[in-house]
């Protein structure tokens, strides 16, 4: 068949597919089921035209046109999958704590952060001059000013709710952004995440140590106690997620670097999302409970409660999967893998 003749025969099909594409693009629901069937058929026919373009010696612009038409229809036919809430809940509540329980990066990050934090706390407490040397006079003055006043008369009722909302929103946006940046920085061979983690641990430790030598120690402790468990854990988690990404580039376990990174990305994102949730919780506590005139016992109770919640999540939910995990994993033979895929999935109740 001559190219021209072929073109004339097919042009109407392509035009029809194009018009259906245009309607689908406007709204996925604008086509009736019959029209959708036609769309799929036209798409396959156009695919076949493209495959035979060389055999029919179609001119170059037509081939280019066909490439773009097939690509366009392909993207409308095969669409992105949406979030499924149930799937995400299962990931967050069951699979994630089990993975984190065995995550060497989380252990390393937690050890590094809390170790450095305690060390700098002791140093900052023993040598109060160090805080000034490290942070500068202005910063230290500002800190002291912030905690000069207590929280006994910080308003009540509606204005308190409003102030809390403003504060919480600022903390959410500021702290979570730091967490996200710490996570992204981890991609740089893990160095970025390590730097952020170390920096935060040392600065926080020194500040904590220094403030405890000043007359404002009481006010300071009143403020930081309630939200500390969530916030510190969230920092550690985001750094660990970033390190997971960054070190996947170095430790590839036999995969290509790109594949190793992709796999790490899949595992690291839920960790980061968990960290974001913790930042959110910390911000709400920091906005409402920490600066409130509540007695210290209540704030300490909030801290203990949130620490217990974290312990439950990481240890109890993490251990829960341990029994399953501990059964020896042996290499499956090809026959077994094929058998497993052939046999229908066991019915779940």
């Amino acid at each position: 068949m001559r190219a021209v003749e072929y073109l004339h025969r097919r042009q109407s099909t392509w035009a029809e597919l194009e018009s259906l594409c245009r309607r689908l693009q406007r709204s996925p629901r604008s086509l009736s089921p019959e029209e959708l069937v036609v769309f799929a058929k036209l798409y396959r026919a156009t695919c076949a035209d493209l495959a035979l373009a060389d055999a029919h010696q179609l001119p170059e612009p037509t081939v280019r046109y066909l490439h773009q038409l097939v690509a366009r229809a392909h993207n409308l036919l095969y669409r992105s999958r949406f979030f499924r809430l149930r799937e995400w809940l299962r990931e967050l509540l069951f699979r994630l704590p089990r993975r984190l329980f065995h995550d060497p990066y989380l252990r390393a990050a937690a050890f590094l952060f809390y170790g450095l934090f305690l060390f700098s706390f002791v140093v900052g407490w023993a040598r109060p001059g160090l805080a000034e040397a490290l942070l500068g006079r202005e910063e230290v003055d500002q800190l002291e000013q912030m905690y000069e006043e207590g929280f006994e008369n910080s308003g009540s009722g509606r204005s308190l709710v409003g102030q809390g909302a403003t504060r919480a929103s600022l903390y959410i946006s500021h702290n979570t952004s730091i967490g996200f940046r710490c996570f992204a920085a981890g991609l740089l061979m893990g160095v970025g995440g390590l730097f952020a983690l170390t920096f935060n641990a040392v600065v926080l430790g020194i500040i904590f140590g220094y403030m405890n030598t000043t007359p404002m120690a009481n006010n300071f402790n009143q403020f930081v106690t309630a939200h500390a468990p969530f916030e510190l854990t969230a920092i550690v988690l985001s750094a660990a997620a970033g390190m997971r990404l960054g070190f996947a580039l170095l430790v590839t376990r036999g995969k290509t670097r790109a594949a190793s990174l992709r796999e790490a990305g899949k595992e690291a994102l839920p960790v980061m999302m968990l960290a974001a949730l913790l930042f959110l919780g910390a911000a709400v506590i920091e906005g409402y409970v920490s600066p409130s005139p509540l007695p210290y016992a209540v704030k300490a109770l909030v801290a203990i409660g949130s620490a217990m919640l974290l312990a439950f999540y990481f240890v109890m939910l993490g251990m829960a999967g341990n029994a399953e995990r501990s059964e020896p994993e042996r290499e499956l033979s090809w026959q077994e893998i094929v058998q497993r895929e052939d046999s229908p999935a066991p019915a779940t109740r």
Binding site: A3, P61, Y65
Partner: peptide
């Protein structure tokens, strides 16, 4: 995603 309309000979 280019939108090409040129086709034919």
């Amino acid at each position: 995603e280019t939108r090409e309309t040129a086709q034919g000979t």
